[in-house]
Simulated scan of single mutants.
Amino acid sequence: MKQLKREQEFGDDPLARRETDNYQNEYVESFVDKWDDLIDWDSRAESEGHFFIDILKERGKHKVLDVATGTGFNSVQLLKAGFDVTSVDGNAEMLSKAFANARDHSFVMQTVHADWRWLNKDVHGKFDAIICLGNSFTHLFEEKDRRRALAEFYAALKHDGILILDQRNYDAILDHGFSSKHKYYYCGDKVTAEPEHVDETLARFRYTFPDDSVYHLNMFPLRKNYTRRLMHEIGFQKVSTYGDFQDKYKDEDTDFFIHVAEKTYHEGE
């Protein structure tokens, strides 16, 4: 008997689903199968260039923990560049897809299925750097979960480790409405991704694919300075923020912010 594919679950009132754990009901197999159409690996690689690789190499980092592996794009880029990468995700469907994608690029990915809030229970050892990319931190809806996750990241880093974490420019979406150049991250030109509802505690995005299938993600709209403040309060000594991979940018013109949080502050910087 053929097993029916699981569909996304948001309940009778999707706008009321504002819980961290609901992402497990969102990243169902059929959505994960289409995720790479949304990203477009080749276009995303072109838009990012060597940004993350350069940051890691400039700081002498080699052992990297990718805590938001998704379908594996960033892990595979780092493996190609010679980094020692461990790939983590809280969703088993994503990890399975990432492993297959890495295999297609001739790599055997080291994967760990783990929840950020209890990361160090499942992931052992210390890392030079942690990356949390793809707007993934926005899946944490409660401040206690965000603080807990950042504390777990902090604990998994070596004394001079760094955390690279990104997010959509939710400030612009909340204050001025949604617009996107679609040049970064979600580069697939046949997929539309746009918010269906936005308020201070929910950004509900709708994803429409060429076959007319529709999926949604409920996310918490993180403001830039709020994220930076949390990082400092957890213990990171210095936080540098880039806009669309540039150190000089205008907030209102930026699609994505990338925060580089350093555990140790170096004199002279």
Rank of each mutant, 00 (worst) to 15 (best):
T201Y: 06
K224Y: 01
R204C: 11
M231C: 08
Y184S: 08
E142C: 09
H176P: 07
G188A: 08
N225T: 07
H159Q: 15
T264W: 02
V64G: 07
D175F: 07
C187E: 05
G235D: 03
W118M: 14
L56V: 06
F127W: 05
I55Y: 07
S96C: 03
F51L: 08
I53P: 10
D37E: 12
H216R: 07
A149C: 04
P195S: 08
L202W: 02
I173S: 11
N218R: 04
D40Q: 01
I258R: 00
F257I: 00
E48N: 07
K250L: 15
F245M: 02
K34E: 04
K121T: 15
W41N: 02
G243Y: 08
E152A: 02
W116A: 00
E29L: 03
A92K: 07
R117D: 14
F31Q: 00
N91I: 00
I162R: 08
Y154V: 06
V28I: 01
Y185W: 12
S136Y: 01
T69K: 00
I53A: 12
T192R: 03
V239L: 13
Y242V: 09
Y186N: 09
F153G: 04
A114M: 15
D122W: 00
G72H: 10
G90C: 02
T208H: 03
P210H: 04
G268E: 02
L4D: 14
F137L: 03
N218M: 09
V214Y: 01
L163M: 09
D251N: 06
G60F: 15
K181P: 10
E233Q: 11
T69S: 08
A156N: 03
F153N: 03
H232M: 14
L163P: 06
Q237G: 08
L56H: 08
D160R: 07
C132G: 02
A151E: 10
V85E: 00
A16I: 07
D251A: 06
N225L: 15
A102Q: 06
C132W: 03
D33F: 02
P210V: 04
G188Q: 11
K63E: 15
K238T: 13
Y154R: 03
V214E: 12
E26R: 07
A81Y: 05
R204I: 14
A129W: 05
F10H: 08
Y186Q: 05
S106T: 14
E152L: 06
K126D: 05
R223D: 13
R17A: 12
A98M: 13
A102D: 14
D175K: 11
V88E: 02
F99H: 14
T20H: 00
Y23G: 05
E252K: 08
K126G: 12
R6Q: 09
V191S: 09
R6W: 07
K158I: 11
V214P: 01
H124A: 12
D36N: 06
A261S: 01
